[in-house]
Amino acid sequence: MNAGMILVGAILTVAGVLLLRAAWMARRAGELTRRRKLVSGAWVLLAAALAPWAAGAGADKGTAFAFIVMMLAGAAIVLREGFLHRPARNGSGRLEREGRDNGNGNGNGGWRLFLRRAWVFVLAGPLSFALSLLLAFILYAAWDMSGEHAAANRLAATLIAVPLAWALLATWMTCDLRLRTRSLHALGLVVAGLGSAWLLGGFA
């Protein structure tokens, strides 16, 4: 590893985060033109920092280092902000938007609420998992096996696709759409998935 290049990468990354902070301050002061320049400069620095990181520590490892330094710098600045912050005179501040309380944990809905929750669990849990496995099967069956590294790439893609698909489906199935709509979406995906699997010879 090249310590000099790593140092340059670290300086550029920290400078990028500091510019982002300066842009944030400019926005608070109402200097929107300056803010735009600072934001652009910050992203240019953060992107440019990847080159010395890659030269100093390797492309993949250097990128990981860059993210670590960026996160550390950002967290340090924001924590400093937290400790230095003075509360408003009336002791309150404007709250950011938070999750709507749609009755989760209400405990007043009786068995209908229980059944709704149980069905949401089935949709986001077992059903989403089954769908992601179905996707894995389709991916595995449909993968073009002509390349030299096809078998390894197919396996890695499948191992990555299952948790990714499940996480996306779980997000979808627990969102604030009507439960009937979510159930229909799930049913549509099951039908599409099973149809694709059948076409690929999955039930032979």
Partner: peptide
Amino acid sequence: RDAFKLRFKGNARLRETDTHNRLGVWAMPF
């Protein structure tokens, strides 16, 4: 827009919300 806004002092909900959002966002890649 809120990337650097963190208020430890103030009411509890404000503190918890800011802490959750800011630390969540800055450590998001991790």
